[in-house]
Each structure stands twice: as structure tokens, then as C-alpha cells.
Design a protein around this nucleic acid. Structure first.
Length: 901
RNA sequence: GGGCGGUUAGCUCAGUUGGUUAGAGCGUUGCGUUGACAUCGCAAAGGCCGUAGGUUCGAGUCCUAUACCGCCCACCA
């Protein structure tokens, strides 16, 4: 069979799609232990993630790329650990967002939603959904997401819709859902109620308008009042002052006249009023302000709505009826000015409530809506985290979660939209009965009348997303999947969605299944641009993940997102980083190519028992330490740090050092070459396994090639007893064992070799020795002479020394003349570079060195004679003693080198 | 008004049981076509770890205060 050759550079373009298809078609994304299949073992505890379902409105963005990378990492890791693993994919109908986009598209065609009618509009929206849901899931596949697509769900599926109805009716029956008129946030643009969470406050420049509230007794006396929204004057039903405010006490109980409308309203006293703010007198508009609403209820004031659903003034606004709210503001103010009621206007910054989706100013209004009585649900959700049943990573977010749950208010769940789950409530036109039902009712249970009509409203999108972890598994049916995979393991999502989604899932999960829906909540931060700015279209700093993947590869993007992030912390993304990681993928590739060629040239059997070189032992010890660290870090959700360490090992230890040494060892041929090849395969194999959850494509591609060649040549996997699996995606995760006694020693010895090599390279570079030129060297190593002697070839090869001209002695009678000298770890290095030695320059260099070493000696002597020696652990003290010893030897040798000059 | 996060090399960031000369990538400066890799290699420069106290034998790491930047929550007309 011809030797397999790989392209010189890693070509992700020809790899990614092919491998993804292979994985998916081989069924690797499905849980190995499937309750629907024979041989199912219920004793195996599964690892389950429900995907945060992307909205069907849009295109892949970095937020998606982040959570897909992170979740795929966890899923692949667990799959390789041999845990039955399930990642449930799906999409969200995203009520408001989608309806808005479809309406916008219709508007471009000159059609209004109302003209189309509900049914036709929904047809159009389903068409939209079919196109965009397919696109977004395709884009998620490109990221390498190993979710089980056979279980893909959509929030408006039949099954999930059934779950929504069940949930609604259960809450209704428990009295936890109610309907009634309340002050809610109204979006005049979308003409629907929105919840408190869907309102964002922005600081904006505005004005404070001061005017006169004339007394009704025609005395000409007035109370000065200030407002930021003059148009709400039309809905005023009282003026409030502080009960102890001496300025206004005399007015309490009197009446004043609403400007321009001449309605008579009372002056009331309430401690809510801040005497120091503005005039210390407040106009009260219960129907259009949350604070005023509370006061209105307390004082039994009438509530006068002055706006219609598009925020135009209604008939209650008298002459202003029909005007837009902001036009009315101006007109009313002008009229008041003309009537002599205006005092002044001052600039004032106010926090303006804007709709999260449309951006328009939200109007507080009285409206009949459906609400969830949330407190009983919140209490249990709070308890689940307090008891530790569910953990939040990073931990600091538990406080945020507590704070929100403790101050939660009833949730407005009805939306005046068409796209969504219709509220499962019917009204009897004969007797007025209200019926909440799991199945569409045909007659009224009370009067048996058949004239029923369903509530027109739909539910808040988050109502259905709140059921996601269990509705996707078949709930309310007790399906085998639900029984086995629920509760899920980790809920991984962006920190900014904690209240919207995570909190609701916690509440609903506990309410409906009796169990918190996941044991861990892992929150990642936002992806910002390279300057730490939020990405936004208006700023033009949005990085689109698709072209990044096109240009630099999926692995590079994934690695950048994963390694650049710490739990809960925002991270800045720059293309430079992705480029650097593209280079890393290529580095992996080329190291793999080298290993393959080594396998092809090395003997396929050994004649004797394994004999490991220092480098072999060293790389093995480092690998074991790496596996241990990776395990520890993964357990603590420190994925970024784990990735970083694997990267450093791979590039800094394996590629930079071991591969270079392997070239020397392979050249020796025989058993040495055989065992070197074996070490190469095993370390490479282990690295590919460790890297796979981060960079699945390049590792799988390379691993397949490695496996083919290794099997052909009879080389084993990293674990010797572990046979080569079918694919890396389902290969076993390297097992970590405790550190063995010899490991630290080998690492320490090898470090000395590295130091020697670095020192010689340094001198060469400083002295501008031509890179190709082999030079001579004399080392004196004292009692380390055997150790260093064994590494002669390695040192010669790595430091550019002529092996024939390298001599290693324990001591020298007389220092070599005309040589550049250095001392490292007590080992002397002499480089006889005739003609290049400038003794005064050398003196200076050695003196600098000596000074450095002496200050270290001084530092350590001081340290060791301090309390440190008795109080610090013996091991730590011993380490410092050793260092001191080495420095002393070094100083001695430097001194003698100086005298020789 | 409350809460949280950040402040470490020119830039972007790591650094989680506190261990004693602080790391990476990019950038900068030299040098380099040694058959894995120029998407690379070798070498170098570059850091009172925001400031002030404290705990400790020992603090980038723990505690307190403080400054600046950012975020979240909250009903100030």
C-alpha cells in the first residue's frame, strides 16, 4: 500500500462538510444509550443539554456561534467520556420578533396584516418560518454542532403546543393565571402588551414642564406642578402633595382645575411625594403611570385612559382627541402657554421606556390582559438554587438570580399578536362563561350553549420557551425519553437571558415536573468587538461568523471563542485571534504529517524491551500532567483555561521540543526509532483526543489518517490497551492517573537540557554565528555528567553543534582559551569561537550574569533565614534551598570564568 | 439609590485550593529557504499586576477602603 500523504496545509474547505456528514450519517450524534432502543440501560446516567432555541427570524451571529461552540464542547467531551449524551436541537417561533419582520416584509409589498386576515397572515408566517428555520439550523451545523437532529423541535410543533396548553390549563386550574384590567406596558407600534422585561430604559434628554394647577375656587391661586409628559395632564385625576409640606398643606382637600379640559380634581396628600423634587407637587395620572396607578388605587381615584392602542389621544382628551401623543403634547403646551398657565421649561434627563424589539416609546396603559401569579412559582425556583439543587456558574450570578426572584412581579403573558400559541380559553356567548381547556370545547359546560369563541390573544413567546427542557422530551406524556433524559444536565446560555428564559424554565420546570430542569446553569458573556464595544449594526462593528468560517475555518473560530472566554465574562473578538488559531489548526495538521512520516519510516517492530530516552519520559510526564489538569479544569467549567493549556503543551512542548528531538532519535534507527515512533503516535493521539471538543474537524481528519497508518504499521493508541475506535468523535477520552514518582524528576532533568540549548542558541544569536554553521562546545557538568552525556546528540542537534566537536566532562583541568562561556544550572558551557571573542565584552556579559546570580543568592539567603524556613511547608523550603545551591555553584563558576579571561 | 464586573507587557487577554525571578497571542527588534509547518523557526526587548492600607513566613491571587471604565436592577413627577 502506498504511503498516505497529506496536503501541506490543512484545508478546512475540503474537510468540514464531508466530516459533518459522516458523523451525522453514522449516527454519532444520537445518544449511545437510547431508551427507545433495545439494550437500553437505565442505570447509566446521561448528559443532556437542550439547545437555547434560536429564533426563526434571523441569521447566525456570534452569540449563536458562542453557545454552539460551548455546548458542543461539553457534549463532545461527555460523549468521549463514554457518558450517554443527548443534545436536543430546535428553534423558537419568537412571536413579536417574527411577526414584526413578516409585517415589515408585507409592508414592502404594500399589504397590511389586517387586510390579509389572521389565517392568511399565519400561512405567510409559516412559509417564512420554513425557510429561515432551515437556514439557521444549517448554519448551526456548519459550526460542527453534534446535536441529535432526529429530535429537532420547534416551539409551535404539535407536541410543544400540547405542552403549552397543558401548562396553561394547569396554572389556570390552580388559580395561578388570571385575567383583568391592569396597568401594563403597551407597544403602540406593535399594538400589543409587553412584559416588564421587554421594556428597556434609556437615558435621554428631555424637559421638565412647570405649570399652574389653578384652584377651582377661582381665587386665582394655584399649585405649581412639574411633569415630563404634559399630554398626560389630560388624564390627571388628582394633584398630590406631601402631607407635611407647609407650602401646600392649606390646599389639601381642595379642588383644582385640569388645564384646558376644566375637569375638577382633588388635591390629595401622600407621603410618596418628594418635597424636594421640582415643585414638590405631583400630578396624578393613574391610567398612564405606574406610580400614579398605585396612588390612584390607594386613594380610589378614577382612572381615565386618554390614549387608544396606537397611542393617539382618545375622546377623553377633548379637543385633542385623534392627535398623536407627541403632537398633543406640543399643542396642549402651546394652548396652556396662551392661557397663561405655563411657568417654565427646564432641561431634564429622563429614563425613557422603549420597546426591546421595536425601539418605540412604550406607553403605560390600562388594559385587560392575562397574567401569571408568579410568586408561588418564584419561591420554589429560589429554593432550588438556595439548596444547591441547581448551581449557577459563575457563582456570582446566584445573587442576581435571588434578587430578581425575590422582587418578581406578576408576568403579563398575553400578547395582541397572531403569531404564537393562542390562549386556550373560550368565552360562551350565551352565559359569559370562561372556559380554559386542553381540547377545543364544542359546548359550554355551564349552559350547554355552542356559541363559543376563543380568546384572540396569543401567549408570550417565553411561555413556551419556559417549557423547553421537558416539552422537547415529550412532556406532558411520560415518554421514555422524558423519563430517562429529564432533568437535563447543563443549561448553557448567555448571561443576559437569565431572567427572560432561565428563570422561567426554573419556575415552570419545578411547577410542572416537580424537578428543577437542570443541575447546572452555565452562563457565558457577551462577545464584544476587539475594542470591547457592543457589536451593533449602527456602529458597523458586527463580525459575521459565516465569512469568518469561510476564510479561516470553523475550528479556528470555535477555538477562539472557547479559549478567549472565562465563565460569565464578556470577551472581545478580533480577527487577529481567529487568524492565530487558524495557524494553530495548521500547526496541528503539520505535526500530524510529521508523525505520519515517522511511522512510515520507522521499523515496525522492536527487538528488545522499551528503552525510553529522557525526552520520551519528559513528554509523557508532561502529557500526563496535562490530562490531569484538563480533567480538573473541565470539572470546574474552566474550558478556556483547559484549551489554553492543551495549546501550550501541543505547540510549546510537543511541537517545539519533542518533534525536534524525535528527528534525532528516528535517525538512530532500530529500536530507538521504533520507540520514538510509538511515543509520537501515542502523544499525538492523546492530543487529538484532548483537542477534539475544541477543534473537531481538523482533529477528526488527522486522526483518521493517523489511525490508518498506525494500524497498518501495528502501532497502538495513546493507551496501548485501547483499540483504535471507528472515529475520533466517539473515541475514548484520555484517562488521567495520579502523578507517578518519576515524573517530576524527568521534567526537572529535561528542563536543564532545555536551558543549555537555549543558552547556546542565545549566544549564537548574540554573536551572530551563521545559522547553518556547526560549532564546537565543551560542557562541564560535574555530577550531572552522565545525564548530560546521554543528551549529547540532542543538545548538538538542537543547538547547532558539531556532534564530533562536543565534549562533555565532569570537570576541566584548565578552562578553554578563547571561548565564550556561560553557566546554567551549575553546568558550564564553553564555545570556542575563535576570532569572535572580545574579552572586554565577555567580561561585561559575565559580570552582568554574576551580578544577577548574586542578587538571587542574597534574596534566597535572606528568605531562608527568615520565618519562611520554619513556617512554610518543608517541600517549599527545600525547593528554595536547592535553588540557592544551584545559584551558588553558578556564581562560583562564573567567577572562575571571569578570572580566566 | 442598590448590586456586579473590569483595571496585569504597546494592543487584546489568561493566570480558582495564596508558594516566592508574572504568561499567551498579536505587534516591535535581530536573524533564518536545517524536508512537519513561512498559516513557520530561533533569539530579544517590553510588566512598582489601578491606588492606599491590612491578613500572612509569603499576596496578581484573601480582606478593607478608594479612583476610573463598563454592565445589571430600581417607580423619582
Amino acid at each position: 500500500m502506498a504511503e498516505e500523504t497529506l496536503a501541506k496545509a490543512y484545508d478546512f474547505r475540503s474537510t468540514e462538510q464531508r466530516l459533518y456528514k459522516m458523523w451525522e450519517q453514522s449516527g454519532y450524534f444520537k445518544p449511545a444509550n437510547d431508551p427507545r432502543k433495545p439494550g437500553f440501560d437505565p442505570s447509566k446516567k446521561p448528559f443532556v443539554i437542550s439547545i437555547p432555541p434560536p429564533n426563526v427570524t434571523g441569521e447566525l451571529h456570534l452569540g449563536h456561534a458562542m453557545f454552539v461552540s460551548m455546548e458542543d464542547l461539553m457534549i463532545r467531551y461527555n460523549r468521549m467520556k463514554g457518558v450517554p449524551t443527548l443534545w436536543v436541537p430546535g428553534t423558537d417561533h419568537a412571536g413579536i420578533a417574527t411577526q414584526m419582520l413578516v409585517e415589515r416584509k408585507l409592508a414592502d409589498e404594500g399589504v397590511k396584516r389586517e387586510e390579509l386576515g389572521r389565517e392568511e397572515f399565519l400561512n405567510r408566517t409559516w412559509e417564512w418560518k420554513d425557510f429561515y428555520a432551515g437556514r439557521i439550523t444549517q448554519q448551526i451545523r456548519r459550526l460542527g454542532a453534534s446535536c441529535d437532529w432526529t429530535r429537532e423541535r420547534f416551539t409551535l410543533d404539535d407536541g410543544l403546543s400540547k405542552a403549552v396548553r397543558e401548562a396553561f390549563v394547569r396554572l389556570y386550574e390552580k388559580g395561578l393565571i388570571y385575567r383583568g384590567p391592569r396597568l401594563i406596558n403597551w407597544s403602540p407600534l406593535l399594538k400589543t402588551a409587553v412584559s416588564d422585561l421587554e421594556v428597556e430604559y434609556s437615558e435621554e434628554a428631555g424637559k421638565l414642564y412647570y405649570f399652574k394647577y389653578m384652584l377651582a375656587d377661582k381665587s386665582g391661586d394655584f399649585i405649581p406642578v412639574a411633569t415630563t409628559r404634559p399630554e398626560t395632564i389630560l388624564g390627571d385625576t388628582a394633584v398630590a402633595v406631601h402631607p407635611e409640606d407647609e407650602r401646600y398643606q392649606k390646599y389639601i382637600g381642595k379642588e383644582v382645575v385640569v388645564p384646558m379640559l376644566n375637569r375638577i380634581i382633588p388635591v390629595i396628600a401622600d407621603e410618596y411625594v418628594d418635597r424636594k423634587f421640582a415643585t414638590g407637587a405631583v400630578k396624578i395620572t393613574p391610567a398612564h403611570d405606574p406610580n400614579d396607578y398605585a396612588i390612584g388605587e390607594k386613594h380610589h381615584l378614577p382612572m381615565i385612559s386618554i390614549m387608544d392602542e396606537s397611542a393617539h389621544i382618545n375622546a377623553n382628551g377633548g379637543p385633542y382627541a385623534g392627535m398623536d401623543r407627541f403632537d398633543a403634547r406640543e399643542k396642549l403646551w402651546a394652548d396652556m402657554k396662551a392661557a397663561g398657565l405655563v411657568i417654565k421649561e427646564t432641561p431634564h434627563t429622563l429614563s425613557v421606556p422603549r420597546s426591546q424589539r421595536g425601539g418605540e416609546i412604550v406607553e403605560p396603559m390600562i388594559s385587560t390582559q392575562w397574567f401569571v401569579k408568579i410568586q408561588p412559582l418564584a419561591e420554589k425556583a429560589l429554593e432550588a438554587v438556595k439548596s444547591g439543587e441547581t448551581k449557577i456558574v459563575p457563582e456570582r450570578f446566584t445573587k442576581v438570580y435571588y434578587n430578581w426572584m425575590e422582587n418578581i412581579r406578576d408576568w403579563t403573558i398575553s400578547r395582541q399578536l397572531w403569531w404564537g400559541h393562542r390562549i386556550p380559553v373560550w368565552y360562551c356567548e350565551d352565559c359569559g362563561e370562561m372556559i380554559a381547556a386542553r381540547e377545543d370545547p364544542t359546548e359550554c359546560p355551564k349552559c350547554k350553549g355552542s356559541r363559543l369563541h376563543q380568546d384572540e390573544d396569543v401567549l408570550d413567546t417565553w411561555f413556551s420557551s419556559g417549557l423547553w427542557p421537558f416539552s422537547t422530551l415529550g412532556w406532558p406524556e411520560e415518554t421514555p425519553e422524558y423519563r430517562y433524559f429529564y432533568p437535563t444536565s447543563v443549561l448553557e446560555t448567555a448571561a443576559d437571558i437569565l431572567f427572560f428564559w432561565v428563570a422561567r424554565m426554573m419556575m415552570f420546570g419545578i411547577e410542572f415536573t416537580g424537578k428543577p430542569p437542570f443541575h447546572t446553569i452555565y452562563l457565558h458573556g457577551l462577545i464584544l468587538d476587539e475594542n470591547g464595544q457592543k457589536m451593533s449594526k449602527t456602529k458597523g462593528n458586527v463580525v459575521d461568523p459565516l465569512p469568518v468560517m469561510d476564510e479561516l475555518g470553523t475550528d479556528a473560530l470555535r477555538f477562539t471563542l472557547l479559549v478567549g472566554s472565562t465563565p460569565g465574562q464578556n470577551s472581545n473578538l478580533s480577527l487577529k485571534k481567529v487568524e492565530a488559531n487558524r495557524n494553530f489548526a495548521n500547526k496541528i495538521w503539520n505535526a500530524g504529517r510529521f508523525v505520519l512520516s515517522a511511522l512510515n519510516q520507522a521499523p515496525q517492530t522492536a527487538s528488545g524491551k522499551p528503552e525510553w530516552t529522557l525526552a520520551d519520559s519528559w513528554i509523557w510526564a508532561k502529557l500526563n500532567a496535562l490530562i490531569r489538569d484538563t480533567d480538573r479544569l473541565f470539572t470546574n467549567y474552566q474550558f478556556g483555561e483547559a484549551g489554553r493549556q492543551i495549546y501550550e503543551f501541543f505547540w510549546g512542548d510537543f511541537a517545539d521540543w519533542y518533534l525536534e528531538i524525535a528527528k534525532v532519535q528516528l535517525a538512530e534507527g532500530g529500536d530507538r526509532a521504533y520507540f520514538t515512533a510509538q511515543t509520537l503516535v501515542r502523544v499525538m493521539d492523546a492530543c487529538l483526543r484532548l483537542l477534539h471538543p475544541f477543534t473537531p474537524f481538523v482533529t477528526e481528519e488527522l486522526w483518521q489518517a493517523l489511525k490508518r497508518t498506525a494500524m497498518e504499521k501495528g502501532f497502538s493508541t495513546y493507551a496501548a490497551h485501547q483499540p483504535w475506535e471507528d472515529a475520533l468523535i466517539i473515541a475514548r477520552w484520555p484517562e488521567s492517573g495520579p502523578a507517578e514518582g518519576w515524573e517530576d524528576g524527568k521534567i526537572g532533568e529535561f528542563n536543564q537540557v532545555q536551558e543549555i540549548v537555549r543558552t547556546i542558541r542565545n549566544i549564537r544569536s548574540e554573536k551572530k554565528v551563521q545559522p547553518g554553521r556547526k560549532i564546537a562546545a565543551i560542557l562541564t557538568a560535574g555530577d550531572k555528567v552522565d545525564l548530560i552525556n546521554a543528551q549529547a546528540k540532542v543538545i548538538a542537534a538542537l543547538a547547532g553543534i558539531d556532534p564530533g566537536a562536543l565534549s562533555i566532562e565532569s570537570t576541566l583541568e584548565k578552562a578553554p582559551e578563547n571561548a565564550i562561556s556561560a553557566v546554567v544550572s551549575g553546568i558550564e558551557i564553553f564555545l570556542p569561537l575563535s576570532g569572535m571573542v572580545d574579552s572586554s565584552e565577555e567580561k561585561e556579559r559575565l559580570n552582568r550574569e554574576l551580578q544577577d546570580v548574586r542578587s538571587q543568592i542574597e534574596r534566597l539567603e535572606k528568605l531562608l533565614s527568615s520565618d519562611f524556613a520554619n513556617k512554610a511547608p518543608a517541600q517549599v523550603v527545600e525547593k528554595e534551598r536547592q535553588k540557592l545551591q544551584t545559584f551558588k555553584e553558578t556564581a562560583e563558576k562564573l567567577t572562575s570564568q571571569l578570572t580566566n579571561l
